[in-house]
Amino acid sequence: MKLLVCISKVPDTTSKINFVDNNTKFDENGVQYIVNPYDEWYALVRALELVEAQGGSVTTITVGTASDDPTIRKALAIGANDAVRIDADPSDPHFVAKQIAEYAKNENYDIILTGKETINYNGSQIGGMIAEMLNTPFVSLATKLDVNNNVATLERDVKGGVEVVEVVTPFVLSAAKGMAEQRIPNMRGIMAARTKPLNVISPVEQEPLSSVVKFELPDAKSGCKYIEPENMDELVELLHNEAKVI
């Protein structure tokens, strides 16, 4: 089985979110980067489990600059066989999807796995775009994945429930919670990761179709109004007359 896992770096979940240069750039000052949890905990770990049980290889792919290499090494330490980095700034989702689709086009991957979203852009866009560019099915928000020869059985979140679907490879999926358990890399993995191949390749042309003009921080809450635990009638009255939510 030949699997490709899309990996991106995101600020640690406890990072303070601020912007610089007139609110046009994320303030990286003091920020620690991690592998996007959906990519790492669910997509990558499930891919590794499948290959460990059935044979094959797991390659990671990242559209990014050299500053992504530490998080790519982390994915290699967890167990991926090798990594590809397409050397470009991942600014626009079409651009990113196009790079991955172009790379994957001739490589005959059975499954391309992405996280369901990144925790910085929350776009949920890359998987679906790659699938359309490669003209394959896309199983979004998958919470379970099993593969038997060239037929995969998945569970995915849909409106009002969970759908069980069967798909013939090749296809693309986005991984959500439930697909696997987080793995902590061990010392051997970390040592091995240093010498695993990380191939850097050049991007193909693709006009960006979108760009971020600026960022803003949401309005801060005006403060908390405290209500005595005995006075729940007062709370209901406030929710009805003041907040107007019930």
Binding site: P93, S124, Q125, G128, M129, A131, F138, L141, V158, L209
Partner: peptide, 19 residues
């Protein structure tokens, strides 16, 4: 929503439209 997350990016790729 769940359907939109699957369909939105596909349409935008197919139409070469920003999303």
């Amino acid at each position: 929503d769940q359907t939109g997350k699957g369909v939105g990016p596909r349409i935008s790729a197919k139409l070469n439209a920003g999303h």
